[in-house]
C-alpha cells in the first residue's frame, strides 16, 4: 500500500508469525443480543499452519456462527481467538471468509471481474484504485478458476456453481493465509466441485490454512487433516494435534 494511513480500519499488513498456529480458539462462547442461550459454547481448538480442517454438523449447529466469529463479524461473549498470533481484525489481509451464497445481494449491477477485484481492495485502502499488479493477480485467478470467459458477465446472471467459484476467486485474489469457507459445495455441480478441490489443494500446498464447513462430508472429494464435529454449539471431538 502506497499510503499506510489509508489502510482500512487503520490496520496494516502484518507478516504471519510462523511460530504460532494459523488459528487458536480458546473457551469461545458466542450468542446473539437478547438471547440468553449461547449459539457456540466452550469451543477450543487450534489450526496448524497449512492444515485443512472440516467443520461438520447439522443445520443450526453453530457452524456459520463460529466461522463469522473467527472472521470478526460477530463479537464473542467470552473466550480468545488468535489468528497467526494476532487478535481478530489486527490484520485484515490475512483472513478471508466465504459466506453462504444467500448473504450476497446478487442483483447488484457488478461484473464477475469487478467482484473478484474486490479481493484486492484491502491492499489498496481508502480512495486508492487497484494497480496493474492487482489486475494481473485478478487475471491469473480468473484463469485458474475457469472464469475468464464470463469476466464481463453480471453476477446476477451466474449459476450457483459459478457464484461459488467467483467467491473463492475473490478469496484467492486477496491472497489470504486463513480461509474460512461456509458450505462452499452446497448445491454446486460436479465440475465446480472438482475445480474447488483443485484450487484448495494448490492453496494448501502453498501453506494456506483453511476451515471448510459442511453438513455432508461426502460432498468433498479431497482429504482433510481433521474433522471438527459441532452439535448444539459444542464441539463433540477435537482431532489429534488440534487441541489448544
Amino acid at each position: 500500500m502506497k499510503f499506510e494511513w489509508l489502510a482500512y480500519g487503520g490496520r496494516h499488513l502484518h507478516a504471519p508469525d510462523r511460530t504460532m498456529p494459523a488459528l487458536l480458539v480458546r473457551g469461545l462462547d458466542v450468542g446473539y443480543p437478547g438471547q440468553a442461550r449461547s449459539v457456540v459454547e466452550a469451543v477450543s481448538f487450534k489450526l496448524p499452519i497449512g492444515a485443512r480442517l472440516a467443520l461438520v454438523g447439522p443445520n443450526g449447529s453453530g457452524k456459520s456462527t463460529l466461522l463469522k466469529t473467527i472472521a470478526g463479524l460477530l463479537q464473542p461473549r467470552s473466550g480468545e481467538i488468535r489468528v497467526f498470533g494476532l487478535k481478530v481484525g489486527a490484520c485484515h489481509h490475512r483472513t478471508s471468509y466465504l459466506p453462504q451464497r444467500e448473504e450476497i445481494n446478487w442483483e447488484f449491477p457488478v461484473s464477475v471481474e469487478r467482484f473478484v477485484l474486490a479481493g484486492r481492495f484491502v491492499h489498496c485502502g481508502w480512495f486508492a484504485l487497484p494497480n496493474a499488479e492487482d489486475r494481473a493477480q485478478v487475471d491469473a485467478t480468473l484463469e485458474e478458476l475457469d472464469l475468464t470467459s464470463i469476466r464481463e458477465t453480471a453476477i446476477g446472471d451466474l449459476s450457483g456453481g459459478q457464484k461459488q467459484r467467483i467467491m473463492l476467486a475473490r478469496a484467492v485474489a486477496q491472497g489470504a493465509d486463513l480461509l474460512l469457507l461456509d458450505e462452499p459445495l452446497n448445491a454446486v455441480d460436479v465440475a465446480t466441485r472438482a475445480t474447488v478441490a483443485r484450487v484448495l489443494t494448490r492453496l494448501q500446498g502453498q501453506g494456506k490454512s483453511m476451515i471448510v464447513s459442511t453438513h455432508d462430508l461426502g460432498l468433498h472429494d479431497h482429504p482433510f487433516d481433521g474433522v471438527l464435529a459441532l452439535e448444539g454449539g459444542s464441539l463433540q471431538e477435537v482431532p489429534y494435534g488440534m487441541a489448544p
Binding site: H92, F108, A118
Partner: peptide, 19 residues
C-alpha cells in the same frame, strides 16, 4: 469501490475493515 462493495456484500466489507 467501498460503496459498491458494501452494497452487495456487507460481511466482506466488515471483514476487511471498511465497516
Amino acid at each position: 469501490k467501498e460503496l459498491e462493495l458494501s452494497s452487495y456484500d456487507a460481511a466482506y466489507t466488515d471483514l476487511i475493515g471498511i465497516g
